[in-house]
């Protein structure tokens, strides 16, 4: 199964490129201390707002800090927020979706109405309200993005559970007197996970975008710790004199988010069984 998916995924050059870029970005984040030429928080009053040059590839900011190094360190924030927030969203969404889909009836009705209520809030308002009230830091952001982003996963998992639980092998497993927990975890869940992986990949892209927006508003990662969003705040403050502060962090966000989206698109095509049949028929 995994082999087939990989074989199909490999055939899409854009998704493959996205996959490679993601791996490179993850390596950059992990190896940040070794790659970054300068300390990302080292202030240098003699080299304030220097445009890109040999010594400072991307220029320096209003405190003379090296932008290239700050962007490299900033990739750690994006990576952490992306994976942890989506992890929380996937766990919550899978739990709610599995319970609703498996038990149906009143459980389903209550849980799904809760999903409807959560979906009615403009997500960004809800996130903003909670973060402004709590202490804004990377931990709060990850949790809040996670607990406001699980609803789509819950709907996906529920739909999968509804179809899978009616299949013959589940009736057979039930007939052996298996417990509900084992039935859900061992037999239904593994078959319901592929759309969840696709949603997770797109979710990481979305979480990175939200984090950069929040940090830009001053509600995310706090300076001096660098994040792509809070570097852009400096870009806005120096908009008339230092274009590089606005340009480079944005390109970093664009490339990262684009790569995850391309991987997601490739995964979706690769695991869609309808497309498999269409091809074997050729």
């Amino acid at each position: 199964m995994l082999e087939i998916i990989w074989k199909r995924f490999r055939r899409n050059p854009l998704s493959l490129t996205g996959c490679i870029v993601v791996l490179v970005l993850v390596s950059i984040a992990l190896l940040a201390p070794f790659i970054a030429p300068y300390d990302p928080t080292a202030i240098n009053v003699h080299d304030v707002l220097s445009p890109p040059c040999k010594a400072h590839l991307f220029g320096t900011d209003e405190l003379g800090r090296d932008l290239f190094s700050r962007i490299i360190w900033g990739s750690r924030v994006s990576l952490k927020v992306g994976f942890v927030a989506v992890g929380i969203a996937i766990l919550t969404g899978t739990l709610v979706g599995a319970l609703a889909g498996f038990y149906g009836g009143a459980t389903d009705a209550v849980l799904m109405r809760f999903v409807d209520i959560m979906l009615a809030f403009p997500t960004f308002f809800l996130i903003l309200a909670v973060i402004a009230i709590l202490e804004p830091n990377i931990f709060t952001i990850m949790v809040v993005i996670g607990i406001t982003g699980w609803m789509d996963v819950a709907r996906l998992v529920r739909a999968e559970f509804l179809t899978i639980k009616q299949r013959d092998f589940i009736s057979a497993a039930r007939a052996t007197g298996m417990s509900d927990a084992r039935l859900i975890l061992r037999h239904i869940l593994p078959n319901a996970l592929s759309p969840v992986f696709v949603a997770a990949t797109f979710g990481i892209a979305g979480a990175i975008l939200i984090e950069s927006g929040l940090s830009f508003l001053g509600l995310g990662v706090q300076p001096p710790e660098p994040s792509w969003g809070n570097i852009l705040t400096a870009g806005k403050d120096n908009i008339e004199v230092a274009w590089w502060l606005s340009l480079f962090p944005g390109i970093a966000i664009l490339i990262t988010v684009l790569s995850y989206n391309l991987v997601g698109e490739g995964l979706r095509d690769a695991i869609d069984p309808r497309l498999w049949e269409a091809e074997s028929g050729k």
Binding site: A205, S212, G213, G235, W243, V257, E265
Partner: peptide, 22 residues
């Protein structure tokens, strides 16, 4: 479409402000 999905709109706003405004 893919670039549109992946662009932080506030960044685009900054770039256009620099271009058209500054």
């Amino acid at each position: 479409v893919f670039i549109g999905f992946s662009t932080p709109t506030f960044w685009l706003a900054l770039l256009l402000m620099i271009l058209f405004g500054v």
